[in-house]
Protein backbone atom coordinates (compact mmCIF):
# COMPACT_ATOMS: atom_id res chain seq x y z
CA UNK A 1 0.00 0.00 0.00
CA UNK A 2 1.43 3.38 -0.98
CA UNK A 3 1.80 6.17 1.54
CA UNK A 4 -1.06 8.06 -0.07
CA UNK A 5 -3.36 5.08 -0.05
CA UNK A 6 -2.44 4.25 3.52
CA UNK A 7 -3.09 7.82 4.57
CA UNK A 8 -6.44 7.95 2.85
CA UNK A 9 -7.44 4.63 4.37
CA UNK A 10 -6.47 5.96 7.79
CA UNK A 11 -8.51 9.11 7.14
CA UNK A 12 -11.45 7.03 5.98
CA UNK A 13 -11.28 4.79 9.05
CA UNK A 14 -11.14 7.80 11.36
CA UNK A 15 -14.10 9.46 9.67
CA UNK A 16 -16.06 6.20 9.74
CA UNK A 17 -15.28 5.83 13.43
CA UNK A 18 -16.44 9.38 14.06
CA UNK A 19 -19.64 8.74 12.09
CA UNK A 20 -20.32 5.64 14.18
CA UNK A 21 -19.62 7.57 17.37
CA UNK A 22 -22.14 10.19 16.41
CA UNK A 23 -24.74 7.53 15.56
CA UNK A 24 -24.65 5.83 18.96
CA UNK A 25 -23.78 7.12 22.42
CA UNK A 26 -24.06 5.41 25.79
CA UNK A 27 -26.36 8.17 27.11
CA UNK A 28 -28.53 10.88 25.61
CA UNK A 29 -25.97 13.70 25.12
CA UNK A 30 -28.68 16.30 25.82
CA UNK A 31 -30.28 14.65 28.87
CA UNK A 32 -30.01 17.06 31.80
CA UNK A 33 -29.73 15.63 35.29
CA UNK A 34 -28.90 18.36 37.77
CA UNK A 35 -28.75 15.87 40.62
CA UNK A 36 -25.66 14.25 39.12
CA UNK A 37 -23.80 17.29 37.83
CA UNK A 38 -20.02 17.24 37.97
CA UNK A 39 -20.07 13.49 38.57
CA UNK A 40 -16.56 12.01 38.58
CA UNK A 41 -15.33 9.46 36.04
CA UNK A 42 -17.05 6.10 36.53
CA UNK A 43 -18.08 3.04 34.55
CA UNK A 44 -21.43 4.64 33.88
CA UNK A 45 -19.87 7.99 32.92
CA UNK A 46 -16.30 7.25 31.78
CA UNK A 47 -15.56 10.95 31.31
CA UNK A 48 -17.84 12.17 34.11
CA UNK A 49 -20.71 14.62 33.68
CA UNK A 50 -20.84 18.36 33.06
CA UNK A 51 -22.40 21.22 35.05
CA UNK A 52 -25.87 20.15 33.92
CA UNK A 53 -25.31 16.46 34.60
CA UNK A 54 -24.94 15.55 30.91
CA UNK A 55 -22.71 12.60 30.03
CA UNK A 56 -19.43 13.97 28.69
CA UNK A 57 -18.42 10.89 26.70
CA UNK A 58 -21.72 10.96 24.81
CA UNK A 59 -21.25 14.64 24.02
CA UNK A 60 -17.68 14.08 22.82
CA UNK A 61 -18.89 11.22 20.61
CA UNK A 62 -21.68 13.29 19.09
CA UNK A 63 -19.20 16.10 18.48
CA UNK A 64 -16.97 13.68 16.59
CA UNK A 65 -19.68 13.22 13.98
CA UNK A 66 -19.88 16.95 13.33
CA UNK A 67 -16.10 17.12 13.03
CA UNK A 68 -16.11 14.25 10.51
CA UNK A 69 -18.76 15.97 8.44
CA UNK A 70 -16.80 19.22 8.41
CA UNK A 71 -13.61 17.44 7.31
CA UNK A 72 -15.48 15.76 4.46
CA UNK A 73 -17.14 18.95 3.23
CA UNK A 74 -13.96 20.99 3.47
CA UNK A 75 -11.90 18.31 1.75
CA UNK A 76 -14.39 17.96 -1.09
CA UNK A 77 -14.85 21.67 -1.60
CA UNK A 78 -11.28 22.88 -1.27
CA UNK A 79 -9.80 19.97 -3.22
CA UNK A 80 -12.48 20.00 -5.92
CA UNK A 81 -12.71 23.74 -6.41
CA UNK A 82 -8.97 24.35 -6.05
CA UNK A 83 -8.01 21.58 -8.47
CA UNK A 84 -10.57 22.71 -11.02
CA UNK A 85 -9.48 26.35 -10.91
CA UNK A 86 -5.74 25.54 -10.92
CA UNK A 87 -5.82 23.02 -13.76
CA UNK A 88 -8.18 25.20 -15.83
CA UNK A 89 -5.95 28.24 -15.33
CA UNK A 90 -2.87 26.24 -16.36
CA UNK A 91 -4.51 24.83 -19.47
CA UNK A 92 -6.28 28.03 -20.53
CA UNK A 93 -3.47 30.46 -19.81
CA UNK A 94 -3.78 34.07 -20.99
CA UNK A 95 -5.99 36.63 -19.30
CA UNK A 96 -8.57 34.04 -18.23
CA UNK A 97 -5.92 31.93 -16.52
CA UNK A 98 -4.43 34.99 -14.84
CA UNK A 99 -7.84 36.06 -13.52
CA UNK A 100 -8.43 32.61 -12.06
CA UNK A 101 -5.06 32.56 -10.33
CA UNK A 102 -5.48 36.11 -9.01
CA UNK A 103 -8.81 35.05 -7.50
CA UNK A 104 -7.08 32.15 -5.77
CA UNK A 105 -4.40 34.53 -4.46
CA UNK A 106 -7.14 36.83 -3.17
CA UNK A 107 -8.69 33.97 -1.21
CA UNK A 108 -5.26 33.16 0.27
CA UNK A 109 -4.71 36.82 1.19
CA UNK A 110 -7.90 36.94 3.28
CA UNK A 111 -7.32 35.27 6.68
CA UNK A 112 -9.13 31.94 6.69
CA UNK A 113 -10.82 32.37 10.03
CA UNK A 114 -12.04 35.90 9.25
CA UNK A 115 -13.62 34.79 5.98
CA UNK A 116 -15.16 31.70 7.57
CA UNK A 117 -16.44 33.76 10.52
CA UNK A 118 -18.10 36.22 8.16
CA UNK A 119 -19.88 33.43 6.34
CA UNK A 120 -21.01 31.58 9.47
CA UNK A 121 -22.15 34.81 11.13
CA UNK A 122 -24.33 35.56 8.12
CA UNK A 123 -25.75 32.08 7.62
CA UNK A 124 -25.52 30.57 11.11
CA UNK A 125 -23.03 28.02 12.35
CA UNK A 126 -23.69 24.35 11.82
CA UNK A 127 -21.42 21.54 10.71
CA UNK A 128 -22.58 22.09 7.13
CA UNK A 129 -22.19 25.87 7.02
CA UNK A 130 -18.86 25.65 8.84
CA UNK A 131 -17.66 23.07 6.32
CA UNK A 132 -18.80 25.24 3.42
CA UNK A 133 -17.26 28.34 4.97
CA UNK A 134 -13.91 26.69 5.64
CA UNK A 135 -13.93 25.04 2.22
CA UNK A 136 -14.59 28.34 0.47
CA UNK A 137 -11.87 29.97 2.56
CA UNK A 138 -9.18 27.34 1.90
CA UNK A 139 -9.34 26.37 -1.79
CA UNK A 140 -6.72 28.95 -2.78
CA UNK A 141 -3.54 26.94 -2.02
CA UNK A 142 -4.95 23.94 -3.90
CA UNK A 143 -5.50 26.13 -6.96
CA UNK A 144 -1.96 27.54 -6.87
CA UNK A 145 -0.49 24.07 -6.37
CA UNK A 146 -2.59 22.57 -9.18
CA UNK A 147 -1.66 25.49 -11.45
CA UNK A 148 2.07 25.05 -10.87
CA UNK A 149 1.86 21.28 -11.34
CA UNK A 150 -0.17 21.73 -14.51
CA UNK A 151 2.39 24.11 -16.01
CA UNK A 152 5.19 21.72 -15.09
CA UNK A 153 3.36 18.79 -16.66
CA UNK A 154 2.57 20.72 -19.83
CA UNK A 155 6.31 21.37 -20.25
CA UNK A 156 7.24 17.67 -20.07
CA UNK A 157 8.58 16.20 -23.38
CA UNK A 158 5.97 13.46 -23.57
CA UNK A 159 3.15 15.96 -23.16
CA UNK A 160 4.66 18.26 -25.78
CA UNK A 161 4.93 15.25 -28.08
CA UNK A 162 1.31 14.33 -27.47
CA UNK A 163 0.15 17.84 -28.24
CA UNK A 164 2.26 17.93 -31.43
CA UNK A 165 0.50 14.72 -32.45
CA UNK A 166 -2.82 16.52 -32.19
CA UNK A 167 -4.08 15.50 -28.73
CA UNK A 168 -6.43 18.27 -27.60
CA UNK A 169 -6.51 20.13 -24.26
CA UNK A 170 -9.15 17.87 -22.80
CA UNK A 171 -7.21 14.78 -23.73
CA UNK A 172 -3.99 16.19 -22.28
CA UNK A 173 -5.79 17.16 -19.11
CA UNK A 174 -7.40 13.74 -18.68
CA UNK A 175 -4.40 11.59 -19.66
CA UNK A 176 -1.48 13.58 -18.32
CA UNK A 177 -2.29 16.61 -16.13
CA UNK A 178 -4.84 15.18 -13.70
CA UNK A 179 -2.87 11.99 -12.96
CA UNK A 180 0.31 14.02 -12.48
CA UNK A 181 -1.25 16.55 -10.11
CA UNK A 182 -3.61 14.32 -8.13
CA UNK A 183 -0.93 12.64 -6.06
CA UNK A 184 0.58 15.83 -4.69
CA UNK A 185 -2.81 17.47 -4.20
CA UNK A 186 -4.08 14.50 -2.22
CA UNK A 187 -0.97 14.68 -0.05
CA UNK A 188 -1.71 18.33 0.65
CA UNK A 189 -5.35 17.48 1.30
CA UNK A 190 -4.36 14.86 3.84
CA UNK A 191 -2.05 17.23 5.66
CA UNK A 192 -4.82 19.87 5.70
CA UNK A 193 -7.32 17.67 7.58
CA UNK A 194 -5.70 18.30 10.95
CA UNK A 195 -5.82 22.04 10.37
CA UNK A 196 -9.51 21.76 9.49
CA UNK A 197 -10.25 20.14 12.86
CA UNK A 198 -8.62 23.05 14.69
CA UNK A 199 -10.25 25.68 12.46
CA UNK A 200 -13.71 24.21 13.01
CA UNK A 201 -13.12 24.06 16.76
CA UNK A 202 -12.06 27.73 16.65
CA UNK A 203 -15.25 28.70 14.81
CA UNK A 204 -17.42 26.78 17.24
CA UNK A 205 -15.51 28.29 20.21
CA UNK A 206 -16.07 31.82 18.95
CA UNK A 207 -19.69 30.80 18.58
CA UNK A 208 -20.88 33.46 16.16
CA UNK A 209 -24.18 32.22 14.81
CA UNK A 210 -23.71 28.85 16.51
CA UNK A 211 -26.40 26.74 18.06
CA UNK A 212 -24.83 26.98 21.48
CA UNK A 213 -26.34 23.86 22.97
CA UNK A 214 -24.84 21.56 20.31
CA UNK A 215 -21.93 19.48 21.57
CA UNK A 216 -19.23 20.51 19.11
CA UNK A 217 -15.80 20.21 20.64
CA UNK A 218 -15.02 23.90 20.19
CA UNK A 219 -18.46 24.89 21.46
CA UNK A 220 -17.93 22.68 24.50
CA UNK A 221 -14.70 24.54 25.28
CA UNK A 222 -16.66 27.78 25.03
CA UNK A 223 -19.52 26.51 27.18
CA UNK A 224 -17.25 25.07 29.86
CA UNK A 225 -14.62 27.82 29.98
CA UNK A 226 -16.12 29.20 33.18
CA UNK A 227 -15.22 25.96 34.96
CA UNK A 228 -11.53 26.02 34.11
CA UNK A 229 -10.55 26.02 37.81
CA UNK A 230 -13.55 24.39 39.46
CA UNK A 231 -14.02 21.46 37.04
CA UNK A 232 -11.05 21.42 34.66
CA UNK A 233 -11.90 18.01 33.19
CA UNK A 234 -14.80 19.66 31.39
CA UNK A 235 -12.26 21.46 29.23
CA UNK A 236 -9.59 18.79 29.16
CA UNK A 237 -11.77 16.18 27.42
CA UNK A 238 -12.86 18.24 24.38
CA UNK A 239 -9.38 19.82 24.27
CA UNK A 240 -7.85 16.36 24.13
CA UNK A 241 -10.31 15.29 21.44
CA UNK A 242 -9.30 18.21 19.23
CA UNK A 243 -5.58 17.79 19.85
CA UNK A 244 -5.49 14.02 19.42
CA UNK A 245 -7.62 14.10 16.27
CA UNK A 246 -5.45 16.75 14.64
CA UNK A 247 -2.31 14.90 15.73
CA UNK A 248 -3.60 11.55 14.54
CA UNK A 249 -4.55 12.94 11.16
CA UNK A 250 -1.15 14.55 10.69
CA UNK A 251 0.75 11.44 11.79
CA UNK A 252 -1.37 9.03 9.77
CA UNK A 253 -1.30 11.06 6.62
CA UNK A 254 2.15 12.61 6.55
CA UNK A 255 4.42 11.46 3.65
CA UNK A 256 6.89 8.78 4.71
CA UNK A 257 10.35 8.08 3.37
CA UNK A 258 9.99 5.29 0.86
CA UNK A 259 6.44 6.12 -0.09
CA UNK A 260 5.65 6.95 -3.71
CA UNK A 261 4.63 10.48 -2.71
CA UNK A 262 7.82 11.08 -0.80
CA UNK A 263 9.97 9.83 -3.67
CA UNK A 264 7.98 11.82 -6.19
CA UNK A 265 8.45 14.99 -4.22
CA UNK A 266 12.18 14.30 -3.86
CA UNK A 267 12.54 13.75 -7.59
CA UNK A 268 10.64 16.93 -8.33
Amino acid sequence: MSGRSGGLVALGLLLAGFALASAWQPHDPFAIDLASRHAPMSLDHPMGTDHLGRDLLSRIMLGAGNTAMVILIVATLSFGLGSLVGVTAGLAGGVFGTVLIRSAEFVIAVPTLILALTITTLFGLSAVTAGLALGLATWGPYALLAHALTLRTLGQPHVLAARSLGVGRTGVAARHVVPATADTLLTYLASDAGRTVVSYASLAFLGLGAETSQPDWGAMLFEYRGYVFDAPMLLIWPGLAITLTALALNLALEPRAGSSRFLASKEA
Partner: peptide, 19 residues
Protein backbone atom coordinates in the same frame (compact mmCIF):
# COMPACT_ATOMS: atom_id res chain seq x y z
CA UNK B 1 -29.91 27.56 26.88
CA UNK B 2 -29.89 23.74 26.97
CA UNK B 3 -32.19 23.67 30.02
CA UNK B 4 -34.76 25.88 28.34
CA UNK B 5 -34.36 23.90 25.14
CA UNK B 6 -34.99 20.61 26.95
CA UNK B 7 -38.06 22.00 28.72
CA UNK B 8 -39.61 23.24 25.48
CA UNK B 9 -38.72 20.03 23.65
CA UNK B 10 -40.56 18.14 26.38
CA UNK B 11 -43.70 19.96 25.20
CA UNK B 12 -43.11 18.63 21.68
CA UNK B 13 -41.56 21.78 20.26
CA UNK B 14 -38.58 21.66 17.93
CA UNK B 15 -36.16 24.21 19.34
CA UNK B 16 -33.12 25.83 17.80
CA UNK B 17 -31.05 27.87 20.23
CA UNK B 18 -28.66 30.42 18.80
CA UNK B 19 -26.36 32.86 20.56
Amino acid sequence: APVLQAQLQALGVQVEVRG
